[in-house]
Design a protein around this nucleic acid. Structure first.
Lengths: 96, 96
DNA sequence: CGTTATTTTATCATTAGGGGTAAAATGCAT
DNA sequence: ATGCATTTTACCCCTAATGATAAAATAACG
């Protein structure tokens, strides 16, 4: 449960970054869940920075969101694109 | 055990970076173990990229090595300082 | 307002990270 | 070569991350 304060700050920073990019691509947690493989509850925790996430999980999310992994640690600024289309090219969001 | 190839590449990249910085400060695995809290076997695994390391562990190692956390993900180049003194200022390497 | 979509929280099972310890392997001196 | 330091590997144990699922809370609509 208790993440130390340093880790907590980074977890929140990373989570915020993920949420920014997810929304910038018009994805819901469910949408990101399908293309990343991570479950919706897990994504919720990670985006809020309440989990001591593993490297593989972060790498997978970066890939699903088509971003370079190191960008996850960059200072959280505005992600340029604002779009609402619930579809990201290259991914098929049909039911399983 | 099986890290996917993307994660494995990053794990190795990060591990290499940690080892570079550790040696640049003249620290052994045992020395880094004492100031970071991570055990020697854990450090060995992480430096070789054979573990799906958790965020808190990486944050702790970055702090122990006095480097900015994002630097861990930077391309592994030469770490400037080459020194052999087994002491890093600010840390006390006496027995427990 | 109610209805639906989305997110958060909770519970259970599985799995692997990391501590602790010890042994084996490697390196590095003399 | 023999020793000593360092690293790697192999266990056992405990805890927490994650998947799966369901329910509760919140948001976004009409």
């Amino acid at each position: 449960m208790g993440l130390d304060s340093d880790t907590q700050r980074w977890a929140q920073q990373i989570g915020q970054k993920i949420r920014e990019h997810r929304k910038a691509q018009g994805l819901t947690l469910d949408g990101l869940s399908r293309i990343s493989g991570a479950t919706v509850p897990t994504l919720s925790h990670i985006e809020r920075g309440t989990r001591d996430v593993k490297l593989s999980t972060l790498v997978g999310l970066a890939k699903a969101l088509r971003m370079e992994f190191p960008v996850l640690l960059a200072a959280s600024g505005s992600v340029d694109t604002e779009q609402s289309t619930p579809t990201v090219d290259g991914y098929d969001l049909d039911d399983d």
